[in-house]
Amino acid sequence: MPTTTNAALRTAGIVADVLRVAVLAAAVFTVLSDQVEGAIRLGLVFVILLAPRLAGLPRPFDLAVCVLLPLATAASLFHWYRQITWLDWVLHCVCTGALAATTYLLLLRTPLLPPQRHQSRAAVVFLTAVVGLALGVVWEFYEWFAEIVAGVRIGVGYSDTIADLAMDTLGSLLAGLVLMVWLANGRASFPRQ
Results as ranks from 00 to 15, higher is better:
D17M: 14
A122Q: 08
R20W: 11
R41F: 12
A101L: 02
V125W: 02
V31I: 13
P2G: 15
T11D: 03
W182N: 06
V67Y: 01
E37W: 12
G132D: 06
G151M: 08
F145M: 04
I154H: 05
E37T: 13
L50S: 02
L87S: 00
L91E: 10
S189I: 03
A8W: 12
V181H: 09
L170Q: 00
S120R: 11
E147R: 07
R20F: 13
T110A: 06
V18G: 03
T3A: 15
L54Q: 11
P60H: 06
L113G: 07
G157I: 00
Q193M: 07
F126E: 06
L133S: 06
I148E: 14
H92S: 07
A188N: 06
E140S: 08
R53P: 00
A175W: 00
H79C: 00
R82M: 10
N6L: 15
V31R: 06
M167C: 13
R82E: 15
L63G: 04
V15M: 05
T103Q: 08
A134H: 04
V28H: 06
E147C: 00
V181N: 06
G97K: 06
S33D: 11
G155I: 08
M167Q: 09
G38I: 08
R82W: 12
R20S: 12
V178P: 00
L50C: 11
A75G: 13
L19R: 11
Q193Y: 10
G176T: 08
T3N: 14
T128E: 05
H79V: 09
Y104C: 08
T11C: 09
T85D: 12
T128L: 05
C66M: 07
A166N: 04
D160C: 01
A55Q: 03
T73D: 13
S33L: 08
Q35Y: 04
P191S: 09
P114Y: 08
V47R: 01
A27G: 10
G136E: 03
V15C: 03
I48C: 05
I48N: 02
